[in-house]
Nucleic acid binder design. Sequence first.
DNA 1: TCTGGGGTCCTAGGACCC
DNA 2: TCTGGGGTCCTAGGACCC
Length: 400
Amino acid sequence: MSFPEMPNQEPQAAASPPRRIAHLDMDAYFASVELLRYPELKGQPVVIGGRRRTAATDAQGFQRLRSYAGRGVVTTATYEARTFGVRSGMGLMKAAALAPDAILLPGDYETYSRVSRTFKAAVAELAPCIEDRGIDEIYIDLTDVPGETRDLAQRLKNAVRQATGLSCSIGVTPNKLLSKLASELQKPDGLTILGLEDIPTRIWPLPCAAVNGIGPKATVKLEGFRIHTIGELAKADPGFLMEHFGRSYGAWLHEAAHGRDDRPLTISREPKSISRETTFERDLHPRQDREELTRILLDLCERLAQDLDRKGYLARSVGIKLRFDDFSTVTRDHSVQVPVADAASLRDAARDSLKRAPLDRKLRLLGIRAGSLVREVDYRMQHAGPDRVAEPSLFEGLAP
DNA sequence: TCTGGGGTCCTAGGACCC
DNA sequence: TCTGGGGTCCTAGGACCC
């Protein structure tokens, strides 16, 4: 989670004009992409999730949610499926109980990534200052883009639809925090423009959990203090919040509730870590299922090595992640002297970490992570200067 | 009918160095 | 011999987000 520093204490010499920050969020993204592929499913409850597998299908070749068995969660549900109470993150078995006749489609992340690049490129044609917030959402700084706000936002929506055939929802406000809230207000296909003067009427009635950065834990804790809406949070004493939520987070809660946020857009960033993990079909025992676990770990190492190679990074630390049958999670990290990227080195480093992990109960997940990344080109540059030592010297090993 | 996979950031203690 | 701080790195865990 990230939250801004304390508000700027410096008195502003002159009030800077308000920014125009847009948040653009694709509507039911994965499901909408699938409806482009299968237009005959339009209007039906459709759920994306689970693994690709052979399963019983209906006359048109579609799998129904009721025939699903196994681990997996809903990645995206169409609005029709949501009327049954299906939500993303929900276990598929639970979703099947709610909407047994919903169509279940496996995710096709390559296609979603490609369409994602397409819609972002379409937006960039109109407004180049973009912060990437994942596969289906972006922030856009419209401050210096000429044009009236509503007209501009509508042109962005049109451009996205023209490029992809998909609808999105946009919120435009003076900052990222409010824009993220605004884009949710009229989903799907929404366009919401708010000023600071709209905070009491439009923002304060919303539940605290609507704020980006207030998750399940903080929500429960706030409810314990009878704080349910953002308006109630705004009324809470900042000292009280800092006392119970920590200085930093407490202060941020207060600022957020008042709609204050001066974070700039992050236009580009370097990855901090790259990882691969997998949840098993059935829980595996560290000793009895040792061979299978080894196979899985090696496969994860291979895939992580491919990712590192493709993206051009080396890892200075390698970590493992274990999730046990009781869902408790443990991580172990290992820093390596020489940065690595190949599967064998990842495996060796992972083994070092594994030695320090508790292995007395069944596992449901195994993961491997490359951290403290360095760009391969930068590393080679620094370690292959004029005094390159990689080549064995002709004089090596000769007696003095 | 439990709970995917890929990330970021924050906190906090201990080691180690100055 | 005792007593400090501060800074940085490493490791582990946890909250949160898409």
